[in-house]
């Protein structure tokens, strides 16, 4: 399973990761903080990490795990 970790201190809640996720793995908390909720759908494409303007996301794990 892939896991996207969000650094809450760096994230500015812009929503770019969740808006453009090809498989919509994120939900957002009330303040806009993205949560990697639908982990099982995540393909590990890494686009959210690459696009994140705040360098706040990290992708860990993989299919084997």
């Amino acid at each position: 399973m892939w896991k996207v970790e969000v650094n809450e201190k760096l994230c500015k809640r812009c929503g770019i990761c969740s808006t453009f996720c090809p498989v919509k793995v994120f939900t957002c908390e009330i303040d806009g903080l993205p949560v990697h909720t639908y982990q099982e759908k995540c393909t590990g494409c890494n686009l959210c990490v690459l696009r994140c303007p705040d360098i706040a996301l990290t992708l860990t794990g993989g299919k084997e795990q």
Binding site: K12, L50, P53, I55
Partner: peptide, 18 residues
């Protein structure tokens, strides 16, 4: 020096990361 000084959603950080 993080978090970045730029506004929420600004593309600068994305380019810098690249």
């Amino acid at each position: 020096k993080f978090p970045l000084f730029w506004c929420a959603g600004c593309g600068n950080g994305s380019v810098m990361h690249a």
